[in-house]
Amino acid sequence: MATAHYSTFDRLRLPAYDNQKQMQTGDLLFDREKCKECGVCVQLCPGGCLLADTATKMDLISGKAKGGKYGVPHVVTMRSGATLCIACYDCGAACPHGAISIKRNFNPGYHFKRLTQTSEMRYPKRY
C-alpha cells in the first residue's frame, strides 16, 4: 500500500496550527518576469493571505485601490514561519499571465494527516 501511515499517536495528537514543522503550509512562487502586477490573485485569494506591496484584498474588493500596478504579490508569513496558504491554486487558475506556481503544497500533520493524497500535484488528465 502506498498510503501514508496513520498511527494512534498521530490520531491523538493535534498539530499546532502556527508551527511549520507540525503543519506543512502551502507556499507559492511568483515569476517576477511574467507578473504584470495586476492584483487579480490578491483579490481572489480565498483566505486573503496574498499581499501586494500597495494593496490588500480588502482594498481591491472595496475599490479603494484603483488601477495601476500593485507590485509583485507574496504569501503572508506569520511570525512563526507558517503561512495560511493551502495551495488551492485559485490564484494560479485566474492569473492571466501564468506567473504563479506552487512551491510547496499543504499538508497538515498528526491528527489531520493526509493518507491517500500524495504530495505530487497533477493537472486533470484525460484517460
Partner: peptide, 16 residues
C-alpha cells in the same frame, strides 16, 4: 469578476 475558472493541479490519489 474577473473570470477565474480554469484547471488546477491537485494531489495525485492512491486508488486500490
Amino acid at each position: 469578476k474577473p473570470k477565474a475558472d480554469g484547471p488546477v493541479p491537485r494531489e495525485a490519489q492512491v486508488v486500490e
